[in-house]
């Protein structure tokens, strides 16, 4: 008996955490067996087992792979662009007061407003194809990267800068030897946010006027009342986001070895 108690005590957090998720799925599954749902509700209702079956069916037919490929491409190109733009701009704004002051109004305004409001304009400019989605992914992901890089640069220890300067280092060396390495934890935290925003951009971008991609698959399914297909999409996005978030968090905790202080971002 004590063996069981000890086993539970040591793993309490995992048992409770996983237990709750399992319980949630089980209750969801057996609701229709318990209560007979009214006609209006049962139309929108599905269960985990039906979603899983649908997932398997769509995988076997290759439908998911086809849509996934388009979404992944938008994600990769958009995120790549945002890294290519966000990092250098973050560094420049962090090191140059004048550039910072000149661009601050735009950064503040664009960052405070959900970038999705630009979607109709992007569709006019880039069409309903893949490029308007790439651009919305880019717009969503670029600001967390830019702002976190900026914050990293701004927080660099003055003593370290003075130290390398005292050895005759020029601005380029100061960047390479101190500023950039110092900003890495901030940039990684920014990357975690950027990935979330990029996934959001893919989903929402594809809701509107697209025929390919997981978001489009969901939107089309929703208008045909195929609720289980919608949930398949939700589950895929959930899984992808979790994998990314956990991976980047892992990288972040490896960086804490020399991390100067807790980098706090959401």
């Amino acid at each position: 008996m004590t063996g069981v108690v000890n086993f539970y005590r040591e793993r309490e957090s995992h048992i409770l955490g996983i237990g709750f998720i399992v319980l949630f799925l089980v209750v969801w599954e057996i609701i229709p067996l318990w209560v007979s749902l009214p006609r209006g509700v049962s139309l929108f209702f599905t269960t985990p087992s039906k979603i899983a079956a649908k997932f398997y069916q769509l995988m076997a037919a290759g439908t998911i792979q086809e849509h996934f490929y388009v979404s992944a491409w938008e994600f990769v190109v958009g995120l790549g662009l945002s890294i290519a733009v966000g990092l250098p701009f973050g560094l420049i704004l962090g090191r140059s007061r004048t550039m910072d002051a000149l661009l601050d109004p735009y950064v503040t305004a664009l960052n405070a407003t959900p970038r999705l409001v630009w979607l109709p304009l992007l569709i006019i400019w880039f069409g309903i194809g893949i490029w308007s989605k790439i651009m919305i992914v880019f717009l969503g992901a670029v600001f967390p990267l830019l702002i976190n890089t900026y914050a990293g640069v701004k927080n660099v220890d003055r003593v370290l800068i003075n130290m390398v300067r005292s050895f005759g280092a020029r601005e380029w060396h100061v960047m390479k030897i101190v500023v950039l390495p110092y900003s890495v934890p901030y940039i990684v935290a920014g990357l975690r946010l950027a990935i979330g925003r990029a996934v959001l951009g893919v989903v929402v971008g594809e809701f509107f006027g697209a025929t390919k991609g997981l978001g489009a698959m969901m939107a089309i399914a929703a208008s045909a009342f195929q609720v289980d297909v919608v949930f398949v999409g939700v589950a895929i996005f959930m899984g992808i986001s979790l994998i990314f978030t956990l991976t980047v968090k892992k990288i972040e905790s490896n960086l804490t070895r020399w991390r100067p202080e807790q980098v706090k971002t959401f």
Partner: peptide, 19 residues
């Protein structure tokens, strides 16, 4: 007129690169 290799500083806060 600027930093030079004939001078070097030891800093109070050490100034070591943590990485």
């Amino acid at each position: 007129s600027g930093p030079g290799y004939e001078r070097a500083m030891v800093f109070q806060e050490f100034g070591l690169l943590p990485w």
